[in-house]
Design a protein around this nucleic acid. Sequence first.
DNA 1: GCGTATGTTGCGTCATGTGCAACGACCATT
DNA 2: AATGGTCGTTGCACATGACGCAACATACGC
Lengths: 246, 246
Amino acid sequence: MSQSLRRGLDILGELASGARTLDELAASLGVHKTTVLRLVRTLEEQRFVCRDDQHRCHLGSRLFHVADIGLEQHPIRDVAAIHLRRLARATGGQAVHLAVAEQGHVVYIDKVESTHAVRMYSRIGLPAPLHCTAVGKVLMAALPPRRRDAVVAGLELRSFTPSTITRASALRSQLELVDERGWAEDVAEHEAHVHCIAAPVHDAADRVVAAVSISVPELVLDHAGVVGLLPHLLETTAAIDAEHRA
Amino acid sequence: MSQSLRRGLDILGELASGARTLDELAASLGVHKTTVLRLVRTLEEQRFVCRDDQHRCHLGSRLFHVADIGLEQHPIRDVAAIHLRRLARATGGQAVHLAVAEQGHVVYIDKVESTHAVRMYSRIGLPAPLHCTAVGKVLMAALPPRRRDAVVAGLELRSFTPSTITRASALRSQLELVDERGWAEDVAEHEAHVHCIAAPVHDAADRVVAAVSISVPELVLDHAGVVGLLPHLLETTAAIDAEHRA
DNA sequence: GCGTATGTTGCGTCATGTGCAACGACCATT
DNA sequence: AATGGTCGTTGCACATGACGCAACATACGC
């Protein structure tokens, strides 16, 4: 809708992958240098971009500030942080994620890096599919049946690995199961050789607002081993829920 | 310069402090609802903003993603992270910061929270003055004499506490000392009752690109106690430098 | 059922953002 | 020191696209 705002955001996206000169930005946005200059200047005034001695553009401090403050705004994140870290320790340094749903995707809003050499690729703010992640299944399972089916119907069910569930009916019945038993798993359905389990986190009104997951490479633990971590996971989500209600 | 980009960024800034309705945004930006709607839609398309069921606006995942990626771009941050955490542990859970200079200010790009009850107010991305922070002094001291004096001359030297240095000559001579001995202190010059020490971090070309600081409330350690942590600090910056050169 | 608060759409106006072309600053090479 | 090249910056004229208004739509409270 708003062209210059859009382009400004494109610049931020571009700068996320490293410093750029004006010309480079102009090229990647497909606009004239002059236009980029003006946008950059506005971004710079607001400190969303800063330029070094050589006039190269970097992301500016205000962006980081806004993101930092904004993340802590997520009321769940604040409460959950300490529990996530404890969970990571209790499970011997596995990767732990906190995720919420946003516009048909899962978005990670906090993570604790695995201490193992093999790491997953995940980032705060990175969207992931709903249908092939444990957190996605938990979040979908929590929806009232009608909306859940509507959401499933709207998904692309893209296949990421041989085990990805691509049939809507199979996904629907798995979500029912997830809803009943209160946790979900992802058996290398998103990333090959990575297994996850996830469980929901509730707000004061008992609605599911987020999910916590543990992700483990096959090399570290087999499937049974991952499911064996379930008590730790459920203990963690219960602790977050409890603190959340208080 | 660019009005709509500016307003879009204002919206992000506004949303950093919590969810807003369209009308609230319109009021705080001083523009018509329609205008806000269009800007928000653009922001939403790019996932810098997301709206919930009640149409309230929140910061969106793309913003977090860009910030997350961008922070890890800072080559120093990546290398330093583990050393900062070790420093925090070695000093008994003091607050540790990593900062760089940006446009006449210090900006924190990473931090480890203190484990003590008394905490400082600091945030990633938050700018702080150069003249009354230990990190600021380190970063200024590293400049070639002429530029250093120019920067000092351009500072406001605002007083934050009774101990804030407000005379340019005093600051200049202190910076010389800092340059010689390789570390700086802040004796409650920025925040009352908080003492800091800081030391520089160098890049592969041996230029100072960042500074690491330890901040301690008076209640926890007196001035001598803080200076007593110096060996830990210098060990940390030396370790970062070494890894950085490798 | 009406009234209010809030989000959304269509439209005419003109401010704003745009590309072009020329200028300037800086660096490297000779 | 002179030259060519790269990159950032400025002035200007044009028309796009952003703006506010007013009317419509929807949801909630009484």
